[in-house]
Computed example of a mutant assay.
Amino acid sequence: MRTQRFAVRAEFDGHPATEDDLLIPALHGFGHFTALQVRDGGVRGLGLHLARLDAANRELFGQPLDGGRVRELIRHALDGAGVRDASVRVNGYLSPGGGRTRVMVTVDEPARPSTGARSLRSVPYARTAPHIKRPGDFGQAYHGLLAGRAGFDEALLTLPGGVVAEGATTSIGFWDGASVVWPDAPALTGTTMTLLDQGLERAGRPSVRRPVTLEGPDGVGRYRAAFVCNARGIAPVGRIDDRRFAVDEELLKQLDRAYGSAPRDAL
């Protein structure tokens, strides 16, 4: 039996996207976004997503982006799609010529958790303004494409000297047997990463930040395990280049508990 494909819905400022609306991301793609998973009308870390959008909008466009307005637009798009479980992206763009921020909300099928350990190919690439989550980053997509062609799942972005920063679309963490270690380097502070931080703190297992490099005394080889995370969930890392990592099932249970302890906020 053929499964019917989820019908993706796109809205601009609360109405179905028109051809003129879609010209904005197509021709004037400068903007920012956040990606979130909605389950039964609720979102883990909703306040973090709204704060991210507002901060980026102020920095890029010099104007706030009201969280109440964003929530209303997400609800409207979900109602239009007739779903309560979905993958949702909220993009902020400035209308050509200036004016009020245009908000695009897309609703797609819910993400399925990753299965199996992930493999990462290190690449020398640093994103401009890495603290802002933004669409259309050619470098990330390019290195991700090359990593896939070389048999890897994702690119691992590194700075001069082999300093580990982040995955192309994920945050990366390491396990030294006592603490979760986040690389101390310019990178996006992921919402899932923050929720893990908070959950580990509540469990009495606070995470730490520490320089991580590909080689040397701070190299990835000193760690017992590694993992990546984003809005789609948490997945173990089985390989970085030629360096193999064992999958630590107990660590994954701790991370799942820490993430699961975050309540879902109603839209």
Rank of each mutant, 00 (worst) to 15 (best):
M1P: 00
A10I: 11
A10W: 00
D13L: 01
G14F: 05
H15F: 04
T18P: 01
T18A: 12
D20N: 12
P25S: 02
H28P: 00
H28C: 02
H28I: 00
H32Q: 02
Q37T: 11
R39D: 09
R39F: 02
D40V: 05
D40K: 12
V43T: 07
V43N: 11
L46K: 07
H49Y: 06
A56N: 07
R58W: 00
L60P: 00
F61T: 13
P64M: 10
D66T: 07
D66Q: 12
G68S: 08
R71M: 11
R71K: 15
I74K: 05
A77G: 05
L78H: 10
L78D: 09
V83A: 10
R84Y: 01
D85N: 13
D85K: 09
D85A: 09
S87Q: 12
V88A: 13
V88K: 11
V90D: 06
N91I: 01
N91K: 06
Y93L: 01
L94A: 15
R100I: 06
R102L: 09
G116Q: 09
R118G: 01
V123G: 06
P124Y: 15
A126H: 10
R127L: 03
H131Y: 12
I132M: 08
I132L: 12
A141S: 13
G144M: 07
G144N: 15
A147M: 04
A147D: 04
D153K: 10
A155G: 06
A155C: 05
L157A: 13
G162D: 11
A165Y: 00
T169L: 15
T170C: 11
S171M: 11
D176T: 06
P183T: 04
G190K: 07
T191F: 09
T192A: 06
L196Q: 04
D197Y: 15
G199A: 14
L200K: 06
P206D: 08
R209N: 10
V212C: 03
G221W: 03
R222P: 01
R222Q: 14
R222N: 10
R224Q: 13
V228A: 12
N230F: 04
A235N: 07
D242E: 14
L251W: 01
L251I: 11
L252A: 15
Q254E: 14
L255Q: 08
A258K: 01
Y259I: 03
A262F: 04
R264L: 10
D265Y: 01
L267N: 14
